[in-house]
Design a protein around this nucleic acid. Structure first.
Lengths: 247, 247
DNA sequence: CGGGCTTTTGACGCCGCTCAAAGATAGTGG
DNA sequence: CCACTATCTTTGAGCGGCGTCAAAAGCCCG
């Protein structure tokens, strides 16, 4: 765990029309006029890996889209048990229209760049421009679907199935066309993966070792690996042939 | 489990303005004009306890609000393991704007009455009347919050904590003012509760017995009970003093 | 009264947690 | 550039909570 300094850095201005997440983020359906209004209240903010972006209960001054990097949402029980409740990838949205705090911590797992909007003006826009709330419904519904797949994983899957499902999700996500064995990098530590899967870090480590022994995964490094036997990985997820999608 | 006959029954017409869920359902923010448009495409449908309302993958002809009763959302793995992924109470919404199927089964846990809208016209309305999509965002966000609390329960809580949290949720929900020990009725069987909590029905039963032995719950019947020691129940949830809200 | 559910309770075993220690890696400062 | 330290990861040993299997008891409805 790294020290959480307030080292927010402003990134140079970028035109929405040139934004890499333009077509998938909350602004996806906006027309030029709406985009102009968004431009006025937006700013880019950067966070280093390990930094906390938002603490549970903090007053939210911004709502944001993830432009690059990976952030985690997590909840902590009184006695210190932690459960990750969300994984934010580029284009995902942070914020809860109608409320001014979040009930979980948001942390940068890797270096992260956010496109942030001031909350108040954004909520005004939300009422006035249907394209944004329509897109927000879609995104919230998709996230609900993902949350439900995740609940099946947490409630019913074995440690082996959980880890296989997690890796399969990573593969599907980074698999931007062009099959074949490409090297993958784990965006999370063993402890974070354990927190994601409702396991302990020791169990996660043991299951990784097991997959390595079985020739399903091949590690070059503790963070970098390739899927050597994709069929076996799918088999290990416990899902239907297709491999249930998680997020 | 009961046989799932297609015994959908039409309920007599009711004016939206007199609807018991008028102020909390998807139509909460609608003005009279919008309500009139909704009236034209709405119909009431009733289901008996145990009936399946929608099968995973079925073409959706309607989207609906629960008017009365309790419905469950559940997912089944290949080998038969089942995880409940949602519990629908009056005013909750069934449907996924932009898709024509659901990825889970919807089942009536008790007798259920739905207020259903034809899907196509509803989606048209969604684009044209911002009040509906705004309300839908709110509801989806609330459900996401609930799903996240649920993930903590599934991933990190013990059997005892899970059951205590479940009962605490029931108490909070039915506790419509007027404290004191009021008798509660479990809306689900042991098996359904187990499916909700990521446990087996035997473990649920054992934990109920344990709470009875400890004098925390007092049963008059296997479905009816009162909370005899509310402080101890809260203590057993594993949450903060307030008792984390689930859904 | 009898048959089918639901629920309870017991016996037992295993998966994953806990505790512990050593190994690998990266970052820091001399 | 290397030693030192902090962090992350691996691996082992042991145990306990919860799942599995089994049987009996309670309850509802015909």
């Amino acid at each position: 765990m790294q020290i959480n300094r307030m080292s927010v850095q402003l990134t140079e201005r970028m035109k929405c029309s040139e934004c890499p997440i333009r077509h998938r983020a909350v602004c996806a359906r906006c027309d030029d006029t709406e985009l102009e209004r968004l431009e006025k209240i937006k700013s880019y903010r950067s966070f280093r890996a390990g930094e906390t972006i938002i603490w549970r209960g903090d007053d939210l001054h911004h709502v944001s889209s993830v432009v690059s990097g990976i952030a985690t949402l997590s909840k902590t029980l009184d006695d210190g048990r932690v459960q990750m409740v969300g994984l934010l990838l580029p284009s995902d949205f942070i914020g809860h229209p109608g409320r001014k705090t979040l009930d979980f911590d948001v942390t940068a797992a890797t270096d992260v760049v956010l496109c942030s909007f001031e909350r108040k003006p954004f909520e005004k826009l939300l009422v006035e421009t249907p394209h944004i709330s329509q897109r927000l419904v879609e995104m919230a519904m998709d996230e609900l679907d993902a949350a439900r797949d995740w609940m099946v994983l947490l409630g019913r899957k074995t440690a082996r199935e959980k880890l296989a499902s997690f890796i399969q999700m990573l593969v599907q996500r980074s698999h931007i066309e062009g099959s074949g064995m490409q090297e993958m990098t784990l965006p999370l530590t063993r402890e974070e993966i354990a927190s994601y899967l409702g396991l302990t870090l020791e169990t996660v480590s043991r299951q990784f070792s097991q997959f390595r022994k079985e020739g399903i995964l091949s590690f070059t490094d503790r963070r970098r690996f390739t899927v050597a036997d994709h069929a076996a990985l799918l088999e290990a997820t416990g899902d239907d042939a297709d491999g249930g999608v998680i997020i």
